[in-house]
Design a protein around this nucleic acid. Sequence first.
DNA 1: ACATAAAGTGTGACTCAGTCTCAATTTAAC
DNA 2: GTTAAATTGAGACTGAGTCACACTTTATGT
Lengths: 145, 145
Amino acid sequence: MLDFHAALKKLRNHLKNNDLRFTNERLTILEEIFQFPPHFDAEQLFIYIRKKHNHISRATVYRTLDLLSQIGIIKKENLGKDYASYELDYKMPHHDHLICEICGKVIEFADDIIEKRQREISENNGMVMVRHQLQIFGRCKEHTE
Amino acid sequence: MLDFHAALKKLRNHLKNNDLRFTNERLTILEEIFQFPPHFDAEQLFIYIRKKHNHISRATVYRTLDLLSQIGIIKKENLGKDYASYELDYKMPHHDHLICEICGKVIEFADDIIEKRQREISENNGMVMVRHQLQIFGRCKEHTE
DNA sequence: ACATAAAGTGTGACTCAGTCTCAATTTAAC
DNA sequence: GTTAAATTGAGACTGAGTCACACTTTATGT
């Protein structure tokens, strides 16, 4: 699992290799992401960051989220809301999500049987699979009557 | 698979049972949905309908899409865009989607192995599954180099 | 067919997430 | 320290979708 220092190194590396600048804003945003819950929304994060660093703009937060996604430090996810969610990109190569409809709790899982079956289904339908996403919505222990 | 007359009957029934009105607008929108590709976006549909029936407003189209979703005539789907897609709600009870990243073609599939495995995964994680969605993105025959 | 009450409609203002422009600032590299 | 190029903040803008409300239409009882 990616820790802050590994992420920072990855970021600096990417910036250097692409003639991009290592800015205070980018550092701050990366730091704050690591303070934040592992699954989060851009706007939530922006509001949180804005409170602590009132010079950082929405545009910069969104731009940085895009940047970090490209590098593979975070990952844009659809978690059933009508806006994007992000998560820290753990080492687990593919994983999908169980989401509690009541409390929003997110559990990650990876399953070989499903992965394999997806590849088979793609082939059977004449497609080459590039990526996939699976969300299971339900109720967690605390929210089942 | 649901045909227009079955859908219309379902709609009239629901309206009657819920003290709602059968309006020209609702009829027109239902008719146009059946003229349209089986997977569509609200805004696309609105523009198409607006051309032919220039008195029908965006609000009515969106309201009717919600209504038809509640009844189960259409279904709101996430097909990887950052706005909602809809599809005619076929009889196939659960199905998921293969989506070509290049041309947007959508293929439907249902798979017992995956369905079963999802239930197992939910249980193993202490959740009761309510619904799920799986999208496989890839390239269809015509768009594989 | 007609009156009536309740539901539905169109308009346009609004929201919300996200993007864009551009002048001013900051960074990296010499 | 200079300089060119990258980055930033502000706020205007976009696009999907929602909302309020005056006006219209429907369903029902007569």
